[in-house]
Structure formats: C-alpha cells, structure tokens
Simulated assay, not measured.
Amino acid sequence: MPPDLLRLDIVVPVLIYCALLVWVGRGLSWTQKLATAAVTLALIICVLLVERGWL
C-alpha cells in the first residue's frame, strides 16, 4: 500500500466524524443524517483540497 493512501491526518478526522455523527444523529431522521453527512464530508474534502494546494 503506498504511504499516501493511508494517512492518519485523513483517517483520524473521518473516524471521529463518523463517531460524532452517530452520537449527534440519534434524534435525526435518516434523511437528515444523510444530508448532514454529505455536507460535512464535502466540507472536509474542500478543506483538504485547499490545504494541499489543489484548488
């Protein structure tokens, strides 16, 4: 596996995000959970792209 494929600066925030989504999303419907997940993942991707200078 190439070293860039498994990077802790990407994996750890995603795992923490998933745990928080489960905890916060207890009172949300499935549609709201999916919308929250999509928006947050899009923000994470945008931050990573800007941080790495790809945008």
Rank of each mutant, 00 (worst) to 15 (best):
I16C: 01
M1W: 01
L48A: 11
L8C: 07
L48W: 02
W54H: 12
D9G: 00
C46I: 13
V47D: 08
L5S: 04
R52D: 07
V24P: 00
L49Q: 13
V12W: 04
I16Y: 08
V47T: 13
L34W: 06
D4T: 02
A42W: 06
A37M: 10
T36R: 10
Q32G: 09
V22H: 11
P3E: 08
E51M: 10
L34R: 10
L55F: 12
G53P: 00
R7I: 02
K33F: 07
V14N: 07
G25Q: 02
L5G: 02
V24W: 11
V50Y: 13
W30V: 10
T31C: 05
A38H: 04
K33A: 02
I45A: 15
D9Y: 03
P13V: 01
W54E: 15
A42M: 11
A35V: 14
T36A: 15
K33H: 08
I10F: 05
A42P: 01
P3G: 00
I16A: 11
V22Y: 13
L43I: 14
M1K: 03
K33R: 15
P13T: 04
L15M: 15
P13M: 07
V14A: 13
C46G: 09
Q32N: 15
Y17E: 09
L21F: 03
W30E: 11
V39M: 12
P13D: 01
T40E: 05
R26H: 07
C46R: 14
D9R: 03
V50N: 11
V12A: 10
D4N: 09
A37K: 03
L55W: 12
V11Q: 04
I10V: 14
L49P: 00
C46V: 14
R7M: 05
R7Q: 06
A37D: 06
L34K: 12
Q32C: 08
V14K: 08
L43D: 10
L6N: 11
V11F: 08
L6R: 07
G25S: 04
L8Y: 04
L34S: 14
T36F: 08
L49W: 05
V47H: 12
V12K: 09
L21H: 07
M1R: 10
R7A: 04
T40L: 10
A37F: 10
D9I: 01
L48H: 03
V47Q: 08
A42N: 08
T31H: 04
L28G: 02
W30P: 00
V39L: 15
I45H: 08
V22F: 11
C46Y: 13
L43A: 15
W23R: 14
W23D: 12
E51G: 13
W54T: 07
C18L: 14
L43K: 04
W30M: 09
D4V: 00
S29W: 02
S29F: 03
L49A: 10
L55E: 12
I10Q: 06
D4M: 01
L5C: 06
L20W: 04
G27F: 05
I44H: 03
S29M: 01
Y17Q: 05
I45L: 14
R26E: 09
P2V: 01
P2N: 12
L55T: 05
C46F: 13
G53M: 02
A19V: 13
C18G: 06
P2I: 03
W54S: 07
P13C: 05
W54P: 00
A35Y: 01
A37Q: 10
P3Y: 00
L41V: 13
